[in-house]
Nucleic acid binder design. Structure first.
Length: 430
RNA sequence: GGAGAGGUGGCAGAGUGGUUGAAUGCGCUUGACUCGAAAUCAAGUUUAGGGUAACACCUAACGGGGGUUCGAAUCCCCCCCUCUCCGCCA
């Protein structure tokens, strides 16, 4: 959620920054509602002050022995009743204004950071760096779904029977590889200072609103309508909301969490895209990194978060590049975002495998996650950051393609061999 | 699913119509005493909105919403949540 006070004080700067996203937002309406609301509030609180005064006065008089039927008391009661009448007029008006204001505020995205490159769409994203040598085999490289089928790592047809298209069942070494990846990622992040959490996979609407998926992106999540519960689209939601409505002590920051969860996405509007393989599914596994930090450190924490995600790719020796998203491609709640894209040799291109965002105080404001120094007067919003560390299914796809051998087997990355207890998948060696 | 209990400040826990944003204890902060610490004493210690140069000050909030009343943490209605027991269940 944007800061209404900032908007009020400098609407032009605000809308300029927001416009970099490539769309216009009706900030005037918000300012108008805000002004009206505040005016009403002022009126209302004056009336209420007088009403409180009368209440206290009547109480005092009755206590000191004045009869309730005394004309003086009758007059005060009459005045209070009159005030009540006026208040019952004002209150619903103000509430309505507040609700509309809140509704509008929740639909405004986060203004991009000053450092975010300005651009229209993904074609204007900026490559920051590359790591590793792209694997370009002389003979045509098989796509990971063919490798997975040949090696018996998954079953697509039966998954459709059990659920629907875009669900996948991993089998045998396929399942084991996925599990090994999850464990490797979690172990690594834990060693690097993240506290592991295993959160609920169903969350309530308040949580989805806190992180920004609601109200605008309701159609992208699976919903259990009878219970006001939703399947999580990412661990970001339950983990960030762990601290919703809390005031943390300043010395509790920074908080680093890592979490493995399945993620559920309806992928509405993506029909026909990536229909084969492990790239785009309704359910996939992800290890997520989430940070809660002091605002002054968030830029540095963001870079460190990206490095932590990169570390996994480096450990797996998977070539990748780091892309900084331009303002036009930035997610709703992010003010700055780096994507990690892994090299997929079959397609000969890089594909997103991690997205590391700095949300500034945008989510904290929605979810009311604040902190307070020991001697500090007011509260401040924390900054939240998160990133995939990594998307597990896509990592498996990248391994299958980058590590396939001429004999049809897939070599197991060295760091995973202790987990899988073998050096190759498929053939006699597995 | 059935029965019961309960939701008050960082925590514990009073408060059943009157200046109670809320006793008391613990915790925390500051100060005094001390060479220092403990103990003791004193003061302070919720959040949000408005307001102010900054204070002052005003308003709201005792799970949420509505009602009764001049006045509600306290009375009435609806909803939500938590806990305990029983049933079912990994």
């Amino acid at each position: 959620m944007i800061d209404l006070k900032q908007l009020r004080e400098n609407p032009q700067a605000f809308s300029d920054r927001l416009r970099r996203r490539g769309a216009d937002f009706d900030l005037d309406r918000i300012l108008e509602l805000d002004a009206q609301q505040r005016q009403l509030e002022q009126q209302r609180s004056q009336l209420q002050a007088r009403s409180n005064e009368i209440g206290a006065l009547v109480g005092k008089k009755i206590k000191s022995g004045v009869a309730a039927t005394d004309p003086e008391i009758q007059a005060l009661k009459a005045e209070a009743n009159d005030l009540k009448q006026q208040l019952s007029d004002l209150e619903p008006q103000e509430r309505q204004l507040k609700e509309e204001l809140e509704r509008l505020l929740l639909t405004i995205p986060n203004p991009p950071s000053e450092t975010t490159p300005i651009g229209r769409d993904e074609t204007e994203n900026v490559e920051v760096r590359r790591w590793g040598e792209e694997y370009k085999p002389s003979q045509p490289c098989q796509p990971h779904w063919d490798i997975a089928t040949q090696l018996g790592l998954w079953d697509v047809e039966r998954s459709v029977k059990v659920a629907q298209s875009r669900f996948v069942t991993l089998l045998g070494m396929g399942a084991a590889l996925e599990r090994a990846l999850i464990q490797f990622m979690l172990d690594t992040h834990r060693d690097r200072g993240y506290v592991e959490v295993l959160p609920p996979l169903l969350v309530n609407s308040a949580s989805l609103t806190g992180t920004g998926q609601l109200p605008k992106f309701a159609e992208e999540s699976f919903r259990c309508a009878d219970d006001d519960l939703w399947l999580i689209p990412t661990a970001e939601v339950p983990v960030t909301n762990l601290y919703r409505d809390e005031i943390l002590a300043a010395d509790q920051l920074p908080i680093y969490h890592c979490a493995y969860t399945p993620c559920f996405r309806r992928e509405a509007g993506s029909y026909g895209k990536d229909t084969r393989g492990l790239i785009r599914l309704h359910q996939f596994n992800k290890v997520e990194l989430v940070k809660f930090v002091h605002p002054e450190t968030s830029a540095a924490e963001h870079e460190a978060l990206v490095a932590d995600a990169e570390f996994i790719l480096q450990a797996l020796k998977l070539p990748y590049r780091v892309i900084e998203l331009c303002t036009g491609d930035l997610g709703f709640g992010a003010m700055k975002c780096y994507d990690l894209e892994v090299w997929l040799p079959a397609a000969g291109c890089y594909r997103e495998i991690s997205s590391c965002s700095n949300f500034g105080d945008f989510q904290a404001r929605r979810a009311k996650i604040r902190f307070k120094g020991a001697k500090q007067k007011g509260t401040q919003f924390v900054h939240t950051l998160n990133g995939s560390g990594l998307a597990v299914g896509r990592t498996m796809a990248a391994i299958l393609e980058n590590y396939q051998q001429p004999d049809g087997t897939v070599r197991v990355p060295a760091v995973l061999q202790p987990y899988l207890k073998c050096s190759h998948i498929g053939g006699a060696k597995s």
